[in-house]
Design a protein around this nucleic acid. Structure first.
Lengths: 337, 337
DNA sequence: CCGCATCACTGAACCGGGTAAGTTGGGGGA
DNA sequence: TCCCCCAACTTACCCGGTTCAGTGATGCGG
């Protein structure tokens, strides 16, 4: 089956292909009557502009890129990325932008992929996640002048747009809630510690604990996997002075922590309260369902995609805060015995 | 920053751009010495061929498409798709093929996306998942002559390559295992019932149960979500003649089922044994860890990507079976009390 | 009735890589 | 010595949209 081109439309409409191009793109230069005729022919023969030809003649590639730099076993189980992706799609799909995905192992590979995509003119911009302190990707993106939007932070990303959620406020709320329930010994199991948002959370956690006079507020670094979550939980629970509440940086580690507590014969929430960061179906699936810090990840993704499209169109975008994070209390938190 | 083109290389090497093209593509027509010189210049200035130009001149777009047709809340939590995607990437990344993703709501939209991608010449082929009986996408793909590989089945996909795993063998193994433990009342909570592999599993489940003389072997249809998994489990457990073992079509529903059992005060595996289809970190995360039907999803994905690349290159591909599914016994299965 | 602006459109160049067809220069065989 | 052949290139056109510099027709004011 042959793909229809603007030349086919031009022939059938009895005009030049330049006129067809103007008509299809809403440019001035054709009469309203001709435009309608051309559009109806295009519709009739099922015309779709060849994305390669369009990209080649200086216009947009109509695609954005996303690199995922986490081991496969995390990617699979963490609802975060898929939620983000479906959020992106909501905005991108509406504008017929494609999303190009690449799974990589290291930030260095991410940089390579960015360079390749740029060289291939394959994408118009990228969405950057898992931002680190002094992230090596930022200067490369600036050098390549590749439109981008950074998810996570806030941090120093120079002129690149950034979208972040109020992690500090969220963890403060969680700690205050636990303290209000009567907890004094609160621990935290964090995600990968060189990620910027992990650092922000750790700082905020320390601040609020100090402000409330909780002295042994410890953060154990982990890596978002269930295994590390279990390990960290065991370490916390076998100590003499064990915490009565633990805040986990993601849902997977929280679920793993719950299993460890049950395994050790501790009752949740009687002996141990659990709070998960990022609510997901996973949190309401287990017994007891987990109290969680909820945010609309999909909306977060949609907002990021919108910012990126703005950046691509040359509209300046800044440093925006995403929708609020709020605490959703469920069965895993209660006053300590 | 200007992107280097083959014209830049040609100028620096003192040859024509035709010669550069031959050299870069390993075509005959240039001497070994010239080829080496051109390749080293390309390397030096960081050349990447413009994918649009390449695609336009009749060659490959060097991208494949994947549509995901499940509600966002399933996509997020089910490790299956991400596992599959990282498998694809292993093959695609090695050949610098891009993966283009689109999340849609209905099979009709999937067809639309295929048509658009085809018209835009954006992709060289597609990976088709969640195949149904008389799937509407198959005839469209044939009409468009779009290379494709179908994951799931086996079923009737005409000349389109297909890759499937032995679901019938796997469920037979699981049932035999439960019977060997002493179970007589085995139920199953299935995934979306118009998917082909769900039907295959249901048929096989009924066959093996009949062969082993288990009379009330019931399959309750669900939709892979935790909510439906809980509902189906409740329905099974409140009945008078409740099963002593349940097989779930995915890990999410199995975890939800476990929570329901615990909620109802039933002990797992004492009062109820649970088997999950598709092993994932989720299964070993909960307490007790779930016995699961394991397969290497990532390898499955890699194999599918390879088949698709073969189809794109015009090599005929057939109907291949993926690596075996095997039972991984864990703490959620035991002889009934 | 003339001159000029405006509209609606055409023609051709262009993007950058692929490739068929044409052009060298040198070596080997007769 | 001549001729032919082949390797090693060059030239030129193709892909399908976009865009800019024309061009002819029309309208309008003076």
């Amino acid at each position: 089956m042959k793909r229809p081109t603007i030349a086919d439309i031009a022939r059938r409409a009895g005009v030049s292909k330049g006129a067809v191009s103007y008509a299809l793109n809403g440019q001035p230069g054709v009469s309203e009557a001709t435009r309608k005729r051309i559009l109806s022919i295009a519709e009739e023969i099922g015309f779709n502009a060849n994305s390669a030809a369009r990209a080649l003649s200086g216009a947009r590639a109509r695609a954005v890129g996303l690199t995922l730099c986490r081991p496969a076993r995390i990617l699979g189980i963490e609802p975060w990325f898929m939620g983000l992706i479906s959020g992106f799609e909501a905005e991108l799909g509406a504008r017929s932008y494609a999303l190009t995905l690449q799974v990589v192992a290291t930030p260095e590979q991410e940089v390579e992929v960015y360079r390749r995509w740029w060289g291939e003119r394959r994408i118009d911009g990228v969405i950057v996640t898992d931002i680190r302190e002094d992230d090596i990707r930022i200067p490369v993106l600036q050098q390549l002048q590749l439109p981008a939007v950074v998810i996570g932070g806030p941090g120093d990303t120079g002129p690149i747009a950034q979208i972040w959620s109020d992690d500090a406020g969220a963890i403060t709320e969680a700690v205050r809630y636990l303290v209000a329930l009567g907890h004094h010994k609160i621990a935290r199991v964090s995600g990968v510690s060189d990620l910027l948002h992990t650092q922000n959370r750790t700082k905020a956690f320390e601040n609020v604990c100090a402000a409330l006079g909780l002295d042994n507020a410890i953060t154990i670094p982990a890596d978002y996997t269930g295994e590390e979550g279990s390990r960290a939980t065991r370490r916390l629970l076998i100590g003499g002075d064990r915490p009565t509440a633990i805040i986990y940086d993601n849902d997977v580690m929280a679920v793993a922590g719950l299993a460890v507590a049950q395994e050790m014969g501790l009752s949740v929430p009687g002996d141990l309260s659990i709070v998960a960061w990022d609510d997901s179906p996973l949190c309401s699936l287990v017994h007891p369902p987990l109290t969680a810090l909820s945010r609309d990840i999909s909306a977060y993704g949609a907002q990021a995609a919108l910012e990126l499209l703005n950046a691509i169109d040359g509209r300046t975008v800044g440093n925006v805060e995403a929708g609020r994070v709020h605490l959703t209390p469920r069965g895993s938190t209660a006053p300590p015995r």
